[in-house]
Design a protein around this nucleic acid. Structure first.
Lengths: 225, 225
DNA sequence: TAAATGCTTCGGCTAACGTCGAAGTATGAA
DNA sequence: TTCATACTTCGACGTTAGCCGAAGCATTTA
């Protein structure tokens, strides 16, 4: 009866405020978990899960499981293109959002990703360890080199104790603020714990922000970055 | 809380099937009345009126009263851009319309795009006129050559009468089935009208399918294709 | 003037969908 | 193992909004 591809199904998906918020949050190119996206959308986790399932069924977003987390990204460039065009149209029609918060500048700098360090500092840490030969990456598998074991032991981390646990020593984790890999796993957690013990950084209560002291920042840059 | 313009309002407008049909119908660039759009959308006039009011309130379409008719067109190029992007995404996601009945093949072959010929025949017509030097394309602008004027006059089309109307003589129209350009505008309309008058083809009532008679098809191939 | 056509508004009905509580699975941590 | 976290599924509720019949304007035609 009508001609052409069916626009309305896809547009209706974007037409829900919660889903639009989810897609807008993913527009930065960052990978986000379901819980984070639920917060962004302003709905509960159950509701967000239903939305994410619908978006994934139409391939507007892609999911990647990592541990017990599920990371979502946009389905492709064409999806971003549609969203961009819609934003332009909405902006022109005067449907701007009321306010924008400078909240996440600190989050981009340094934050905890469950138990390890993420953000710009986290990426610097991971790349620094690679450059110093402590870690070696083969695809998505990360190993600690023999020289790296000595380095970590010197830093105050008991690799043998970590090795007895079932959890993998090293794991790559995708960063949402820069979409780059940083170090997770028990070694990543131990590094953050050790840095906190050394007084290099402190965690803000009720937030994921990690604050480095001036002395801690310089020590970090010298030793690890 | 959220950043960026509010996509969802506009996307929700496109998300309704009736409104999506209306917008798709207006994609040809032609101005259509409320009654025509109601038919395209498959709803009654009252329902279409409500939809048109909503679309007009957000400036996605523009209205122009002429006598007791109300002609609607797309609000601007950016609206068309959004629709194009959505069509590409919908086509890529495999969300083509479900009912691919026997009409579909006929529609791809030859159909009316409001008032001119589209489909495989429409593309053949356009390319044939280009090859014969009747038309000349410069980017998206199409002009009738001096020799073409004589050709069209010979075919029984009064170019002078068409020139007095406000509508552009020639307009390019993108074909969804083949993603190629075909001829719209008043010349395109006049050509279809003339071919019907010559008995080359007939329109099916209540449908957009155009059926060529065997004699008409050969005449079409000799004269225009 | 009256009749006809094109469009808008009003009222009520219906169906669809977003929402969340609660329970169920899966993975990681202790 | 036992607990905690992350996510999914189920069921029910409630709001929303599309839809059309009928009536109301507005404009053209006879």
């Amino acid at each position: 009866m009508k001609e052409g591809p069916d626009i309305s199904r896809i547009a209706a998906l974007i037409g829900d405020p919660a889903r639009a918020n989810i897609l807008t949050a993913l527009m930065s190119g960052k990978a986000l978990t379901a819980t984070e996206l639920a917060g962004e959308a302003g709905v509960t986790l159950q509701t967000a899960s239903a939305h994410l399932a619908k978006l994934q069924a139409t391939e507007m977003i892609a999911a990647r499981k990592s541990g017990r987390h599920k990371y979502f990204t946009l389905g492709g460039d064409d999806v971003g293109h549609v969203l961009e065009a819609l934003m332009g149209l909405a902006a022109g029609a005067g449907h701007l959002r009321t306010r924008t918060g400078p909240k996440d500048a600190a989050l981009r700098e340094a934050r905890v990703c469950y138990s390890h360090l993420a953000g710009a500092r986290g990426i610097a840490l991971y790349q620094g360890l690679l450059r110093r030969g402590v870690l070696q990456a083969e695809g998505e598998v990360i190993r600690v080199t023999p020289a790296g074991s000595a380095f970590l032991c010197d830093f105050g981390i008991d690799l043998d104790a970590l090795g007895r646990a079932k959890a993998p020593l090293c794991r790559s984790c995708l960063d949402w603020s820069a979409r780059q890999t940083h170090l997770a796993g028990s070694v990543g957690r131990a590094l953050l714990t050790r840095m906190q013990a050394l007084g290099w950084c402190t965690r803000q209560e009720g937030s994921r922000v990690v604050t480095f002291t001036p002395a801690g920042a310089t020590a970090f840059a010298q030793t690890l970055g």
